[in-house]
Design a protein around this nucleic acid. Structure first.
Lengths: 224, 224
DNA sequence: TTCAATTTGTAACATTTGTTACAGATACTA
DNA sequence: TAGTATCTGTAACAAATGTTACAAATTGAA
């Protein structure tokens, strides 16, 4: 498991010795869940950092009439989930977490983060830096997404995401198919196709298979 | 100035003594800017936490053809800005910050946060907790906003924001006028008015002056 | 290769939302 | 109080996007 932990954002840059030290001093535990098990429920107080080691976890909430809606899905080893609620110091998650397949979760008591005493060891500083980086990344990513969603027209949304992801040569590799891109932009897939084709006709870009090449950078920027 | 700092998110829960200790040990400085002065520019490396003490600051970026677009505005005493870039450990802000009126900014070197040595003082732990809380709040807020924006229809957006802000009795006080609400939801004001009135006709809610009262909570939830 | 499954572009039409203009309501000031 | 500015709802129309269905293109596997 250590090999996986070393690659996670939380333990990035730490030696195996340091990671073990963290796990021991923090009282971290690995908990196994079977398919369908609840990992935490809505009313529960967020007291542990949850890191997915193996499996798939969905975050959702129950509305008052009992309907369930899924807010997020995690399936990458090393990902944290629910950590925002931990650091908000909220009295309850307002969401539940459920394993959709068998899962293993590393759980680190939050108290560990909030107690610097006797921790002039480097691992503590590294972990703090990592946690800050994780939260900052999340805020940064959400902000990027919001800027796309905040565009008034579909053409503007496309311009935004293309500019955000363009490499120096003007090549854009989004790593999404049309359907996923449409979901990301929150539009219907045929609407997306239509607008992409229109933009190509207008000479703004060139579409080749999965790749898109920006022809007129300035014009795209002027749309925003 | 201490009185203001005590109310800021960054120094929340700290005594004046502790705050002074922080300022001294961190090498923090208060810098004055005149109207129009650049506080940091796009290529600059983010090395200091910036807290607005007085004035107004806009964050923006220059696109390649020289046009400027404003991304955010800060004018609340005690607010941090640009902190996400600091904790991302990026090599450059990709934005500039500019004072739009005379401003005073408290600047705290980031190194202070990343060095726990000899800091078994309680103020360090408190500050870490506060910084984590600030970032978590930002992520939480952005996520809330994103959930509203991700709704497919205007009616769903309204349902979402009303449910997010409803008190137990079903009263919703948004503290925004129609124009601001329309901006927040990213729709045209007349479209917003039209949909609100339709929802009232459908019996979902009741509008009284600035306040909105939810009549049928379940039906609103079922929209989502 | 060949076939089936998936992805993508297209078109016609329905629906939603934006735009513009204006009048009644509300809030603010002299 | 009167008068002005701002906010809000309304309506007619324009424009953008969603919906549905389908065929061409692409991918992946046998």
């Amino acid at each position: 498991m250590l090999a996986e932990l070393k690659k996670s954002m939380l333990f990035l840059g730490m030696t195996e010795t340091e990671i073990n030290e963290c796990l021991k001093k923090s009282g971290a535990k690995v908990v196994e869940y079977k398919k369908g098990d609840i990992i935490f429920h809505q009313k529960e107080e967020p007291l542990k950092l949850m890191m997915l080691i193996e499996g798939t976890v969905v975050i959702g909430n129950n509305s008052s009439d009992g309907r369930r809606s899924v807010v997020a899905t995690f399936n990458q080893t090393g990902e944290l989930f629910g950590e925002v609620f931990v650091f908000l110091n909220k009295k309850s998650y307002d969401h539940y977490a459920q394993a959709t397949v068998q899962a293993r979760i590393l759980q680190i008591p939050k108290a560990f983060i909030y107690n610097a005493e006797g921790r002039n060891d480097t691992y503590y500083t590294k972990m703090i830096a990592n946690v800050l980086s994780i939260l900052a990344h999340k805020a940064y990513f959400l902000n990027q997404r919001l800027q796309v969603m905040a565009c008034a027209t579909l053409r503007q949304k496309l311009a935004k995401i293309l500019l955000q992801n363009a490499s120096v040569g003007g090549e854009v590799r989004l790593g999404m198919n049309r359907e996923a891109l449409a979901d990301f932009l929150n539009v219907a897939r045929p609407s997306l196709s239509r607008e992409l084709m229109k933009m190509q006709e207008d000479g703004l870009l060139r579409i080749e298979k999965k790749n898109i090449y920006i022809n007129k950078l300035e014009e795209l920027e002027n749309l925003l």
